[in-house]
Protein backbone atom coordinates (compact mmCIF):
# COMPACT_ATOMS: atom_id res chain seq x y z
CA UNK A 1 0.00 0.00 0.00
CA UNK A 2 1.34 3.39 -0.97
CA UNK A 3 1.64 5.62 2.04
CA UNK A 4 3.60 8.63 0.95
CA UNK A 5 4.21 9.55 -2.62
CA UNK A 6 6.04 12.22 -4.59
CA UNK A 7 5.00 13.10 -8.10
CA UNK A 8 7.31 14.92 -10.51
CA UNK A 9 8.99 16.51 -7.52
CA UNK A 10 11.44 19.19 -8.67
CA UNK A 11 13.53 21.75 -6.83
CA UNK A 12 15.66 24.38 -8.48
CA UNK A 13 18.07 26.69 -6.67
CA UNK A 14 18.72 29.47 -9.10
CA UNK A 15 19.94 27.68 -12.19
CA UNK A 16 20.86 24.50 -10.34
CA UNK A 17 18.39 21.63 -10.37
CA UNK A 18 18.83 19.82 -7.06
CA UNK A 19 15.92 17.44 -7.43
CA UNK A 20 14.60 16.68 -10.89
CA UNK A 21 11.21 15.20 -11.58
CA UNK A 22 11.33 12.49 -8.95
CA UNK A 23 8.48 10.02 -8.54
CA UNK A 24 8.80 7.93 -5.46
CA UNK A 25 6.35 5.83 -3.51
CA UNK A 26 6.88 4.77 0.06
CA UNK A 27 5.09 1.70 1.30
CA UNK A 28 3.55 1.50 4.71
CA UNK A 29 5.42 -0.30 7.46
CA UNK A 30 8.45 -0.92 5.25
CA UNK A 31 12.00 0.33 5.39
CA UNK A 32 12.70 2.53 2.40
CA UNK A 33 16.15 3.84 1.56
CA UNK A 34 17.47 6.60 -0.63
CA UNK A 35 21.05 6.31 -1.77
CA UNK A 36 23.25 8.18 -4.17
CA UNK A 37 26.62 9.89 -4.45
CA UNK A 38 27.31 13.10 -2.54
CA UNK A 39 25.36 16.03 -3.88
CA UNK A 40 22.79 13.78 -5.53
CA UNK A 41 19.95 15.73 -3.94
CA UNK A 42 19.01 13.28 -1.20
CA UNK A 43 18.87 15.78 1.63
CA UNK A 44 17.03 18.26 -0.56
CA UNK A 45 14.51 15.52 -1.29
CA UNK A 46 13.98 15.11 2.47
CA UNK A 47 13.70 18.84 2.90
CA UNK A 48 11.00 18.97 0.25
CA UNK A 49 8.93 16.27 1.91
CA UNK A 50 9.31 17.69 5.42
CA UNK A 51 8.34 21.18 4.31
CA UNK A 52 11.71 22.89 4.69
CA UNK A 53 11.87 23.78 1.04
CA UNK A 54 8.95 24.44 -1.19
CA UNK A 55 9.19 22.45 -4.42
CA UNK A 56 9.57 24.33 -7.69
CA UNK A 57 7.03 21.92 -9.15
CA UNK A 58 5.48 18.55 -8.46
CA UNK A 59 3.65 17.33 -5.40
CA UNK A 60 3.91 15.33 -2.20
CA UNK A 61 0.96 13.21 -1.18
CA UNK A 62 0.65 11.67 2.25
CA UNK A 63 -2.19 9.30 3.09
CA UNK A 64 -4.09 10.52 0.06
CA UNK A 65 -3.72 14.15 1.09
CA UNK A 66 -1.63 16.72 -0.72
CA UNK A 67 0.93 18.23 1.66
CA UNK A 68 3.20 19.93 -0.87
CA UNK A 69 2.87 23.47 0.42
CA UNK A 70 2.28 22.81 4.12
CA UNK A 71 4.78 24.34 6.57
CA UNK A 72 7.01 21.87 8.38
CA UNK A 73 5.29 22.10 11.74
CA UNK A 74 1.93 21.19 10.17
CA UNK A 75 3.57 18.29 8.36
CA UNK A 76 4.98 17.04 11.65
CA UNK A 77 1.52 17.16 13.18
CA UNK A 78 0.23 14.91 10.42
CA UNK A 79 2.64 12.24 11.61
CA UNK A 80 5.75 12.80 9.55
CA UNK A 81 8.93 13.03 11.63
CA UNK A 82 12.53 13.47 10.60
CA UNK A 83 16.05 13.63 11.95
CA UNK A 84 19.03 15.63 10.77
CA UNK A 85 22.52 14.56 9.78
CA UNK A 86 23.88 16.73 12.53
CA UNK A 87 21.51 15.78 15.28
CA UNK A 88 20.90 19.42 16.29
CA UNK A 89 20.27 18.33 19.88
CA UNK A 90 20.81 20.68 22.81
CA UNK A 91 24.08 19.42 24.21
CA UNK A 92 23.97 21.27 27.52
CA UNK A 93 20.72 19.63 28.48
CA UNK A 94 19.81 16.12 29.55
CA UNK A 95 18.60 13.42 27.20
CA UNK A 96 15.22 13.43 28.88
CA UNK A 97 14.86 17.19 28.61
CA UNK A 98 15.72 17.02 24.96
CA UNK A 99 13.11 14.40 24.29
CA UNK A 100 10.24 15.69 26.43
CA UNK A 101 9.51 18.57 24.10
CA UNK A 102 9.05 16.09 21.27
CA UNK A 103 5.53 15.37 22.36
CA UNK A 104 4.67 19.05 22.57
CA UNK A 105 2.82 18.98 19.28
CA UNK A 106 0.21 16.62 20.74
CA UNK A 107 -0.57 19.00 23.60
CA UNK A 108 -2.67 22.11 23.75
CA UNK A 109 -1.56 24.14 26.74
CA UNK A 110 -0.38 27.65 25.99
CA UNK A 111 1.44 30.51 27.64
CA UNK A 112 -1.50 31.31 29.87
CA UNK A 113 -1.67 27.71 31.07
CA UNK A 114 2.00 27.98 31.97
CA UNK A 115 1.61 31.23 33.87
CA UNK A 116 -1.47 30.04 35.76
CA UNK A 117 -0.15 26.49 36.13
CA UNK A 118 -3.49 25.02 35.12
CA UNK A 119 -4.43 21.37 35.63
CA UNK A 120 -4.35 20.96 31.87
CA UNK A 121 -0.70 22.01 31.76
CA UNK A 122 0.22 19.68 34.61
CA UNK A 123 -1.56 16.78 32.97
CA UNK A 124 0.09 17.44 29.63
CA UNK A 125 3.52 17.78 31.21
CA UNK A 126 3.07 14.41 32.82
CA UNK A 127 1.93 13.06 29.49
CA UNK A 128 5.02 14.40 27.71
CA UNK A 129 7.33 13.05 30.37
CA UNK A 130 5.67 9.66 30.16
CA UNK A 131 5.95 9.65 26.39
CA UNK A 132 9.60 10.61 26.63
CA UNK A 133 10.35 7.75 29.01
CA UNK A 134 8.44 5.40 26.76
CA UNK A 135 10.43 6.30 23.64
CA UNK A 136 13.70 6.30 25.56
CA UNK A 137 12.90 2.81 26.65
CA UNK A 138 12.12 1.93 23.04
CA UNK A 139 15.50 3.18 21.81
CA UNK A 140 17.21 1.66 24.83
CA UNK A 141 18.46 4.86 26.42
CA UNK A 142 16.58 4.80 29.68
CA UNK A 143 19.79 4.38 31.65
CA UNK A 144 21.26 7.63 30.33
CA UNK A 145 18.05 9.66 30.53
CA UNK A 146 19.49 12.09 33.08
CA UNK A 147 22.87 12.47 31.40
CA UNK A 148 23.79 15.57 29.43
CA UNK A 149 23.61 15.03 25.69
CA UNK A 150 27.08 16.57 25.36
CA UNK A 151 28.51 13.59 27.23
CA UNK A 152 26.97 10.91 25.04
CA UNK A 153 28.61 8.81 22.36
CA UNK A 154 27.76 9.53 18.74
CA UNK A 155 25.57 6.45 18.61
CA UNK A 156 23.67 7.48 21.74
CA UNK A 157 23.13 10.90 20.24
CA UNK A 158 21.65 9.30 17.15
CA UNK A 159 19.38 7.22 19.35
CA UNK A 160 18.34 10.35 21.22
CA UNK A 161 17.47 11.98 17.91
CA UNK A 162 15.41 8.89 17.01
CA UNK A 163 13.66 9.11 20.36
CA UNK A 164 12.84 12.75 19.80
CA UNK A 165 11.34 11.93 16.41
CA UNK A 166 9.39 9.04 17.89
CA UNK A 167 8.03 11.22 20.68
CA UNK A 168 5.99 13.09 18.09
CA UNK A 169 3.88 9.94 17.51
CA UNK A 170 4.87 9.65 13.87
CA UNK A 171 3.49 7.29 11.30
CA UNK A 172 6.57 7.71 9.19
CA UNK A 173 10.10 8.81 10.07
CA UNK A 174 12.71 10.19 7.71
CA UNK A 175 16.23 9.55 8.95
CA UNK A 176 19.02 11.56 7.37
CA UNK A 177 22.20 9.45 7.50
CA UNK A 178 21.40 7.85 10.83
CA UNK A 179 24.61 5.85 10.93
CA UNK A 180 27.06 8.57 9.89
CA UNK A 181 30.02 8.77 12.22
CA UNK A 182 29.08 5.59 14.04
CA UNK A 183 31.33 2.51 14.22
CA UNK A 184 30.31 -0.81 12.54
CA UNK A 185 29.16 -2.57 15.71
CA UNK A 186 27.00 0.31 16.70
CA UNK A 187 25.70 0.62 13.14
CA UNK A 188 24.30 -2.84 13.51
CA UNK A 189 22.53 -1.77 16.68
CA UNK A 190 20.99 1.17 14.89
CA UNK A 191 19.89 -1.09 12.04
CA UNK A 192 18.18 -3.34 14.57
CA UNK A 193 16.46 -0.31 16.02
CA UNK A 194 15.15 0.71 12.61
CA UNK A 195 13.82 -2.78 12.05
CA UNK A 196 12.15 -2.57 15.44
CA UNK A 197 10.52 0.71 14.43
CA UNK A 198 9.21 -0.83 11.23
CA UNK A 199 7.90 -3.85 13.08
CA UNK A 200 5.79 -1.64 15.32
CA UNK A 201 4.14 -0.21 12.24
CA UNK A 202 6.19 2.94 11.81
CA UNK A 203 7.27 3.44 8.23
CA UNK A 204 10.96 4.23 7.90
CA UNK A 205 12.69 6.12 5.14
CA UNK A 206 16.41 6.76 5.38
CA UNK A 207 19.29 8.29 3.53
CA UNK A 208 22.47 6.35 4.01
CA UNK A 209 25.93 5.77 2.63
CA UNK A 210 26.64 2.53 4.42
CA UNK A 211 25.70 0.11 1.67
CA UNK A 212 26.07 -3.04 3.64
CA UNK A 213 23.54 -1.87 6.16
CA UNK A 214 21.15 -0.57 3.52
CA UNK A 215 21.26 -3.80 1.57
CA UNK A 216 20.52 -5.83 4.65
CA UNK A 217 17.62 -3.86 6.06
CA UNK A 218 15.90 -1.99 3.24
CA UNK A 219 12.77 -3.34 1.64
CA UNK A 220 13.02 -0.84 -1.16
CA UNK A 221 15.73 1.45 -2.43
CA UNK A 222 15.70 4.52 -4.63
CA UNK A 223 18.91 5.77 -6.19
CA UNK A 224 19.38 9.45 -6.92
CA UNK A 225 22.11 10.87 -9.10
CA UNK A 226 22.39 14.55 -10.00
CA UNK A 227 18.89 15.05 -8.65
CA UNK A 228 17.34 12.40 -10.86
CA UNK A 229 16.01 9.00 -9.96
CA UNK A 230 18.13 6.48 -11.82
CA UNK A 231 16.83 3.32 -10.21
CA UNK A 232 14.28 2.01 -7.80
CA UNK A 233 13.61 -1.46 -6.49
CA UNK A 234 14.51 -4.23 -4.10
CA UNK A 235 18.12 -4.40 -2.81
CA UNK A 236 19.14 -7.23 -5.12
CA UNK A 237 17.74 -5.36 -8.13
CA UNK A 238 19.70 -2.27 -7.20
CA UNK A 239 22.88 -4.22 -6.64
CA UNK A 240 22.82 -5.47 -10.18
CA UNK A 241 21.61 -2.30 -11.83
CA UNK A 242 24.16 -1.05 -14.33
CA UNK A 243 23.16 2.59 -14.07
CA UNK A 244 23.72 2.44 -10.36
CA UNK A 245 27.09 0.77 -10.66
CA UNK A 246 28.15 3.39 -13.16
CA UNK A 247 27.00 6.20 -10.89
CA UNK A 248 29.16 4.82 -8.14
CA UNK A 249 32.21 4.70 -10.43
CA UNK A 250 32.90 1.06 -10.89
CA UNK A 251 30.51 0.00 -8.21
CA UNK A 252 33.09 -0.95 -5.65
CA UNK A 253 31.19 1.04 -3.09
CA UNK A 254 28.15 -1.11 -3.58
CA UNK A 255 29.53 -4.60 -3.26
Amino acid sequence: MIFLETKNLTKKFGGLVAVNNVDFAIEKGKINAIIGPNGAGKSTFFNLISGFHRPSSGSVIFNGREITTLPSDKIAKLGIARTFQTTNLFEQSTVLDNVIVGHRLRTKSNLLDAILRTPRLKAEEAQCREKAMEVLEFVDLKNVATKLVGGLTQEEKKRTAFALALATNPEIVFLDEPAAGVNPDETEGLAELMKKMASTGITVCLIEHKMQMIMSIADKIMVLNYGEKIAEGRPEEIRNNEMVIKAYLGGSAIA
Binding site: S50, G51, F52, P71, S72, D73, K74, A76, K77, A81, R82, T83, F84, N88, L89, F90, S93, D97, I100, V101, G102, R104, L105, L164, A165, A167, T168
Partner: peptide, 18 residues
Amino acid sequence: RTYIAIRNSEDLAKTIGI
Protein backbone atom coordinates in the same frame (compact mmCIF):
# COMPACT_ATOMS: atom_id res chain seq x y z
CA ARG B 1 10.67 24.00 26.81
CA THR B 2 9.11 25.00 23.53
CA TYR B 3 10.95 28.33 23.57
CA ILE B 4 14.23 26.71 24.53
CA ALA B 5 13.76 24.25 21.69
CA ILE B 6 13.47 27.18 19.30
CA ARG B 7 16.61 28.77 20.71
CA ASN B 8 18.50 25.53 20.42
CA SER B 9 17.60 24.81 16.82
CA GLU B 10 14.77 26.35 14.96
CA ASP B 11 14.93 23.65 12.29
CA LEU B 12 14.66 20.88 14.81
CA ALA B 13 11.82 22.69 16.57
CA LYS B 14 9.88 22.86 13.34
CA THR B 15 10.32 19.17 12.62
CA ILE B 16 8.87 18.26 15.98
CA GLY B 17 5.78 20.24 15.09
CA ILE B 18 6.39 23.52 16.88
